[in-house]
Design a binder for these strands. Structure first.
Lengths: 242, 242
DNA sequence: AAAAATCTTTGCGCTAGCGCAAACTTCAAA
DNA sequence: TTTGAAGTTTGCGCTAGCGCAAAGATTTTT
């Protein structure tokens, strides 16, 4: 990407919303671009946080590994999203592992440069607050789901989230935009790959989706939404007024 | 509390860390104090967010109610903690319900006043970022726990969190500082009151704690920590080198 | 002091979901 | 095209934890 285009892109991001135009030359000067191959690891949870990133192209998985060896996926980042804010600002090690799930292009700022901009530029600090609060709201939903919902519903939610975030409308339905395994879906839903496989198989026989290896085509998004929102359960209760 | 003492207290809070001393008169002038009786509800999830609070005295439960009627507790606030930041700044309705679990005293700012201070005072914005990032880190832990750990361990974690946050050391052990029911613990741990009751009973027979009605006395914190950290499981495996 | 309301405990049966094992499919490399 | 590695499916048995019901205990109200 050339400089002109990059600046235009930066201006469109949440992180730099409402920042004066004349600042972008300097913001860009402080940055450098980095690319990552598919499957490459940007940093591992516990690494010292030296870099703040904005994802320009591709998709990155943020996850945590428990001491017991279980992996938990916290978020899939898409183009335009910033990451590494917390670790860089708080001077702590990265609390998560970041791995490219597609070939990726990022803009990167050193810890010091990133801190400089966030601290000395109130609008950028406010934008950071907005981004962080999005995470909080999303994580609250996640906690509520894990605490109260059955696996089937959680899996439906996970897949719908992926679809909303990176689905591509095709003639046959909505196709998820990147390779994803049953194991990945399990790590997003708080279950096992076996259970994911069984439930996807069931949905496939019901004609709701097609699950090829590492890819999913949603044929009836509405049916999935019904499961995610637990519609149709009302009918099962079959309460008839007296 | 008189003005002098209140200002001294404000200065000690995360929210106003590193704010110049001469600002506190004006910050305080913009605020008003509110008190809430035990069990009183400050606001319900979905209410328009008109007030930003700092808790001075007492304890407040932040929770969400699912459409199905299940309650999930997200956090217990203690003295010195700020809440309502997100809703006020984002101009959204409160995403959670806040209820006093003890008699409480709060400082309150109207939405507009709170926004004014956060927006026009970079240091306060940075402090907000710090507070929000604490929530994110805590919620990540919560998600990881719910996704990978068994109930017994999650309950141990919940109780230890309460103890750390509001426990009082006594001759007989650590007593939780406020009334809490089995149902409350269940809502923190993502399980049911029956399971909590059974597990507390078990721990009581093992001599680890004493569970009276609405109160818990931890007699062996170390044993609880072992369960929370899943120590002692290694022994069960009983792997002997060949 | 009695009555009502709220919490807690525990027996019992049940099922959602786990996780091993083994076969099968798909993809990538040689 | 073959071979191997990686991912998926499914049978099977098992158990952790759910949730009703009913009895007790504790707290609050009158």
């Amino acid at each position: 990407m050339d400089k002109e285009k990059l600046i235009k892109y930066l201006k469109s991001l949440d992180m730099f919303d409402h920042v004066e135009s004349n600042q972008f030359d300097r913001i860009l000067e402080d940055s450098h671009t980095v690319t990552f191959q598919q499957d490459e690891i940007l940093f591992i949870q516990g690494d010292p946080a030296n870099v703040f990133y904005v994802l320009i192209e591709g998709r990155i998985k943020l996850s945590q590994l428990t001491p017991e060896g279980d992996q938990v996926t916290l978020h899939y980042l898409g183009p335009g999203e910033a990451f590494g804010i917390i670790a860089v600002l708080r001077e702590i090690n990265y609390p998560v592992t970041a791995q490219a799930v597609e070939n990726c292009e990022c803009l990167a700022w050193s810890k010091d440069k990133a801190k400089k901009w966030i601290i000395s530029y109130p609008q950028i600090a406010l934008n950071s607050i907005r981004i962080l609060s999005n995470f909080i709201l999303a994580f609250q939903d996640r906690i509520r789901e894990l605490s109260t919902q059955r696996v089937e519903r959680r899996i439906a939610h996970s897949i719908l989230r992926l679809a909303k975030h990176s689905g591509k409308q095709t003639k046959r339905g909505i196709a998820l935009g990147f390779k994803i395994t049953r194991q990945d879906i399990a790590e997003m839903s708080g279950t096992t790959l076996y259970t994911v496989s069984r439930i996807l198989s069931k949905w496939e026989t019901l004609g709701m989706l097609e699950g090829h290896s590492k890819s999913i085509l949603i044929k009836e998004p509405h049916a999935l939404t019904n499961i995610a929102e637990d519609l149709g359960e009302e009918n099962k209760l079959d309460i008839t007024p007296p």
